[in-house]
Every structure is written in structure tokens, then in C-alpha cells.
Design a binder for these strands. Structure first.
Lengths: 195, 195
DNA sequence: ACTGTCTTGTACCGTTCGGTACAAGAGCCG
DNA sequence: CGGCTCTTGTACCGAACGGTACAAGACAGT
């Protein structure tokens, strides 16, 4: 008995990968156990609620990471051009240029999303809102900034789907770069009009 | 014993819905049996290869439908503006404004896609190619038409993800309409430059 | 070192899984 | 109506499922 002093937080990354690859239904306890290196005993010690609690913990972890690394940066920066470029770069590395799936997005597509609908909705709503306020700081009118943010987040999700289907990282990066340019162009257009 | 004279083709729509909602892993035989109204005996009579053959049949059916209803129309029409508008309309109804998931896209995201990677890649490559040739017919240069088509298909997939996550049909339609306008604008711009 | 608490491997539970076997029944041809 | 083929419900298989129980073992406090 190793008593690894492992916090449940240490298992979350491996846990997330299993859910990403196999979905909620396909992530069996044996696969989870193999991926995390934890036996059933430890798993149910850390997550008494079973698979659903594991998924909830993973979603919360993802939400925290995005909030800290992306959303707050979008809202707090006073240089929207740099903030947008940083988001695009972070998104590219996080999703591994389309090689890594967005767990929140895929979970939302499946029928087993029911207990997590609120978390899923919040994740995307928060992303769009943060990006919209960032764009709006570049003198872009609010409603235009909102639709632009919405289209960008949707484009990122679509880029993941497409890059995975075509098994081509360049597809992902190409689409990402286009959205970056579109947002920066919008800011540039409204700024020049203001001068 | 009803001897319903049912061809396996009659079961494909219900089969597709089960796979759409629950994915390959989550679509258990009991669920499939309930959704199609066919017992295990009939299912394995029609699909001796089990779940994988069912999925393959569904994918082939989907590919046929898109080829007949969308792809060929994009390529054969000599009026790209009307063809694009028709595609947008058909896509909106087919995906039920984001209420219905794209099976090919979701399958590509999961780890159980392995036996179907070729079908998945073909589906998207075909869609992008057909849309690109249609756009190119509107005097848009080939490479620009290609990236435009790629972004549109990705945008549609992302719109499904987002509309499902936010549970809002308007999100889907809004994004769809934007892509329609973008393509038509590109055609209009290059056409006017030609006159 | 002893003890009590926390952690963990393992055995085990009932259920459901994908898949097979096959007999009973339905439709068709004569 | 008698046989023959095709279809289908049902029983059944071993394996894997999610989850529980619990004893053996590892740590911390004294």
C-alpha cells in the first residue's frame, strides 16, 4: 500500500485525457484506473460520487484553468491587440493544434451531458463574454464585438472538429490565424475611424 | 414473428439517431434495439458485423445523402449564389438549427473513430472541395475559394457545438447566416472587379 | 514502539455489455 | 395444404461494467 499522498487534484490531468479521448460513456473505470495509476479503492476514495463526480471535478479544473490563463487575461488587459494574440497562441498550444479535443465541447454534443449542462453553458458563455469585452475595448461597438466573439469561439471549436477529421494541424492553425486577423482588423478599422 | 419485410435501410435513420445521441461507445445494443424496434436477432441478421457494421452503414447512408442533396448541387449548379444559399438552407434544416448533432464530426472527435477515419476524412474533404469549386465559379480565385470553404465547413461544425452547448438555435442560425454572407460578399467583390 | 487514522489493493456484488445459437413462427411456392 | 426458406424472439454465453466492502498496510502523533 503506497499511501502516495496523492491529492485528487494530481489525478485530474490523466482523468481529463481519458474523458477527452473516450467520452463519458467510453471512459470505463478500468481505463481510468490504468490512465491515472490509481486503483478502484483510491478512485472511490477521492471521488465517492463515481464517474460523474470525476467528470465534474475535471470540468471545474478546466474552467479554473481557462479562467486564470485566458478569460481574465482577456478582460483585464488594456491592450486588446496583444490580449487577442495571446489567446490565439494559448489556444493553439492548449488544443495542441487540433490534436487535442475540447472536452467541454464534446461533452456538450453527447447525450450524457445532462448533469453538466450548466457547466458547459457557463464555459462557453464566459469565453464569449470575455472575448467580447476585450474586442469592445478596441473601440468596436458592443453588439459587433459580441457576434465577433461568438463566431471566433465557434470557429475554434469547428477547427478542432475539422483538424481531427482531416488529421491536419495546419487546418487548425490556418483557421485560428484567420480569426485572429478578423478580430484585429475589426479593431483597426474602428480605431482609425475614431482618429 | 412479424416478418416485417424490413430492409436494413429502413433501420438506418433510427440507428443514426442513436449513434448521434450516444456515440459509438454509448450506443448499446439494447438502446439500438429499442430505437429501431428490431430485436437482436433481426439486428444481427441485417448487420452480421455487429455495431461496427451498423456504424459503417450509417456513415455510408449519410455520405450518400449529402452527396445527392448538397455536394453534387454545389458542383453542378451554374449559379453559385443560389447554390450557396440552398446549401445554407439545407444545412439549417438537416442539423435542425443545431439541435441535431453531426454524427461524422462527433465520431471524428472520439477515440472509437479508428475503423472509420477514412470515411470521416472523405466526408469533410468532399464537402470542402464541392463548396470550393462552387465558390470558385463565382470568379473567386481557387486558393481563396478553398480557404473560404474550409472556414465555412469548420464554422458550421463549430456552430453545432456552440448551439448545443448554449442550447440556443439562434446562435446556430446567426453563424450560418454570417458564413453565407461572407461567401456571397466574396463572390460579389470579385465579380464587380471583373466587370 | 504503539496506536489510531487514513489510504489502497483485492475480492466480490448484481447488472449490462456485445455477441451467438437456435427453435418457433411467418411468408412463399407448389 | 405440405414443405422450404427466411426472419425473429428468446435464452444464453463469457466478459466487462459501475460500484461496494473490507482487511491489510502505510503514515503521524505520542
Amino acid at each position: 500500500m503506497s499511501r502516495t499522498a496523492t491529492d485528487r487534484a494530481d489525478a485530474l490531468p490523466a482523468l481529463a485525457e481519458v474523458f477527452r479521448e473516450h467520452g463519458h460513456a467510453g471512459a470505463s473505470l478500468s481505463r481510468i484506473s490504468a490512465a491515472t495509476g490509481l486503483g478502484k479503492g483510491s478512485l472511490y476514495n477521492f471521488f465517492p460520487g463515481g464517474k460523474d463526480e470525476m467528470m465534474a471535478a475535471v470540468l471545474a479544473d478546466i474552467a479554473d484553468w481557462f479562467e486564470a490563463a485566458i478569460f481574465s487575461a482577456l478582460e483585464l488587459s488594456d491592450d486588446p491587440v496583444r490580449a487577442i494574440a495571446a489567446m490565439i497562441r494559448d489556444v493553439d498550444t492548449y488544443f495542441n493544434s487540433g490534436g487535442r479535443v475540447c472536452l467541454v465541447g464534446t461533452l456538450g454534443l453527447s447525450a450524457s451531458r445532462d448533469p453538466f449542462t450548466k457547466s458547459i453553458r457557463l464555459y462557453f458563455a464566459r469565453w464569449i463574454a470575455a472575448l467580447a469585452t476585450c474586442i469592445a475595448k478596441g473601440s468596436v461597438p458592443g453588439n459587433e464585438a459580441s457576434t465577433l466573439a461568438e463566431r471566433t469561439v465557434a470557429g475554434i471549436q469547428g477547427a478542432i472538429v475539422l483538424a481531427r477529421a482531416l488529421d491536419d494541424e495546419n487546418t487548425f492553425r490556418r483557421i485560428l490565424r484567420h480569426h485572429e486577423k478578423t478580430m484585429l482588423d475589426a479593431i483597426a478599422a474602428h480605431r482609425s475611424r475614431h482618429s
